[in-house]
Each structure stands twice: as structure tokens, then as C-alpha cells.
Design a protein around this nucleic acid. Sequence first.
DNA 1: TCGGCATAAACTGCATACGAATTTTGAGGG
DNA 2: CCCTCAAAATTCGTATGCAGTTTATGCCGA
Lengths: 216, 216
Amino acid sequence: MDQPKRHMKDVIYDEYLGRIQRGELTEEDRLVDTAVAEEFSVSRMPVRDALMRLTHEGYLASSSRGFKLPELEPAQILEIFELRRLLEPRAAALATQAMTQADIETLWQAVALSESTIASGDVQALYRASEDIRRTWIMAVPNRELRDTIQRYMAQIQAVRMATLRDAEAHRVLVSFHRRMVEAFASGRGVDVELLVLRYVLAGEESYLRVKSPAR
Amino acid sequence: MDQPKRHMKDVIYDEYLGRIQRGELTEEDRLVDTAVAEEFSVSRMPVRDALMRLTHEGYLASSSRGFKLPELEPAQILEIFELRRLLEPRAAALATQAMTQADIETLWQAVALSESTIASGDVQALYRASEDIRRTWIMAVPNRELRDTIQRYMAQIQAVRMATLRDAEAHRVLVSFHRRMVEAFASGRGVDVELLVLRYVLAGEESYLRVKSPAR
DNA sequence: TCGGCATAAACTGCATACGAATTTTGAGGG
DNA sequence: CCCTCAAAATTCGTATGCAGTTTATGCCGA
């Protein structure tokens, strides 16, 4: 076994972190320790540990009736966009150096999937492609602290995706950026990547504002 | 009462966060849940919640025999310096706009304290002054997400302080930066603050490298 | 039909208990 | 005096139970 005695609280933490990051939880879902405990056939305690940890890390929000996905205020989403502007360009530039050939391959496949959605209009596939690209380059970020910090606002990424993905204009912009970003990653020129990722974040912010503002 | 039912786990969390941030724990200290539980006359459970939270947030490290202060690897400290370079200049610029007259007053007092240590050589006072200045401007950062992210690597700040504070050259540089930074904050010119804080972080990194490298 | 109020249900926080893993201790043999 | 190995102590993870609090439910009167 390469399982050096995994504790249940860590297993549950990893499992739900994965589910959250893969977008498998909806807004309505309520996580209650007793229910999750039954799912894993353990007591409430390791579940409580895991859910409270996810809560403190911002992946969940604790209400008086179970844990649920945090509902980010638009103001908070814009605050996180500021963080992303500051961190992601540099992080992506650092990732460029550390990327393997297999990573590049994954990225190209995601680009192909992304571009196929122009014709198909399959937003689920676009979601997956976007997620694949993001996950791939973030995993390649060599600075662990930077990587962890970026991964902590996954909830914002998903909220923005949910808000903008059905917007045709945002869809086209996103697909275009996917190709250009992967081209930059493949070229290995960190400077190009840095600038492009900055533009990508800014474009995401613009899309979000465009979708949100007229709705008021 | 304006105490809307504080939970013990939060009380314990706050108490120990404060002790850690005030530097009241030494490297040798071992926090064991049963002992802390006795200190607060509660069971292990709320203590475990608090200590595990502090651990996940990076303020403590869990060893096989109790919790202790995390010993950051130099590599990790340098990684966090990269984060600080990216975040703190912009955060300080944002804080400049939001700073009150009382904040400026606090900053000037800290500068006075800081400069008095040139003659006295009182490193404890320098520590406090540095801490006061940092806390004041960080609290003024209007972007909550940015503020929380910056506050999360408090352990790095302290590790760097501990490593460099007794270094005479680092001492002089720090005191000089204190005055110039507060002048910039007081002037209200965000651009000046941004550049100065970047230089401040870079200077901190240099001091750290200088103190660490010859030791090898 | 609707609002107020009491009761039930749900959920969390904390206490206590036990087993497992790991470290420390200490005794006996070389 | 040192090494080895087993017993003891320490600490952690988990189970279960109870109490307090908040939310939902449903009954009653207007």
C-alpha cells in the first residue's frame, strides 16, 4: 500500500474539496454532518473536521442549517478579481517554465474541446475545457504558496463561470483566449503568458460586469 | 450583553491567534489539547477545533507531539516573499485612500518608537513598532479578500523579523523605511506608497537573504 | 384565510470515552 | 557503559451522547 494511514477526516476533506472544485455541488445542496457521516459510515466528528476546514478555507459557508456553497456578493467577486489581476499573470509566467510536454498536450486538447463548442453551443463542454486549462497551468505553478493562494478562490471562478457562460459574447471571448493562452504557454515565453493572462482576467471581469450590470 | 454567545472554540482561537501574533510563543513551546483544555476549563473538543484551525491557516504546525510554531523552510519564506511583492504594494496603495487621521497618528507614533530604537538598540520595541505600522495599514485595506490573504502569512513576517531583527544593517534599513512609508501614507499619494512598499518588501527579502546565506 | 404561539425537529457545540499509533522510559543483557 | 526490546505514557482520531439554539410545523383563535 502507498496509503500511509489516511485519516477519515482527510479523506472526507479531499473528497468534498474535489466535488466542490469539479462543480458537483449546487447552490441548493445542504451538507449536514450526520448525512455525510452516514455516506462514509463514520461518526460526525471526522465529518465536522472536514466541513469546518472547508468552511474556514472559504470553500463552504456555514449556515444555521447545514453547510452550503458560499454565495459570493458581486462586490466580493470584484474584490477577488483584483487579487486575480495581481497574482495570476505572474503565476502563469512562472508556470510556463515548469510545464511539461504532457501538460501542453492536455492544454491543446482542451483548446480543441473549447473551440468545438462554438459550433455546438455546448456550455458544459466549454466549462470543462476552461476548467482543464486552468487546472493544468495552476498545477504547474512552481511556487506552492502562490498556487495554494490562487486555488483558494475557486468559488469565485465558478461563480463567474456560472454567471457568464451562457453569454454569447463572453463565450466567443473565452474560446479566443483559450487558444491564445495555450499558444503562449506552448511558446514558453513567460512574458507573453503574463500579459495574456492579465488580459484574460480583465476580460473575465468585463464579461462579468456586462452580464451583471444590465440585469439590475 | 454585547456578547452574542461566543463559542469556546472561537474564544480559544482568538486567544491563541493573539498570543502567536504578539510573539508570545517560543519555538520550544508545545501546545497539547489536554493542557489547553485545562487552561480554559473545557474539554478537548473546542481546543482541537481551534488548534486545528490555526494549523490549517499556517499559524501552527502539527507535530507528532503537540502543536508548535511552524518552522518555515527558507525556500518557503522566499516563495511568500514573491506573494508579498505581488500583493502588498497594491494593497498599501488602496489602503492609503481609506486611512483615517487616527491611523496616521498611530503610524507617526510607531515611527517615533522605531527611530528611538536606533539609539537604544531595543529590538523588542522595534518589533512592536514594525508590527504596529503593519497592522495599521493592513487594517485600512478596503479590499477584504486582499486583506485576509495578506494576513494569512503572518508566520512568515514573524520568521523574517526573528531572523533579521538583530542584524544592525537590517535594523537601520527598517527604521528608514518606516519613516518614509509613513510619510507616503500621510501624503495620501497611492503611487508613492505602492513603489515604497515594493521597495520595502524587496529590502526585507535582501536582508533575509543576507542574514541567511552567510550562515550556511 | 391568516397570524400568533407552542411544540417538534434539525443541527450544532461540547463532554466523555476508548482504541490506535507513536514516543518515551527503563530494565536486563552484553 | 551501551544497546535492545518491551512496557508505559502520551497524544491523537473517532464514537456516542446530551444540551442548547435555531428553524420548521401545525394548531388554535380571530
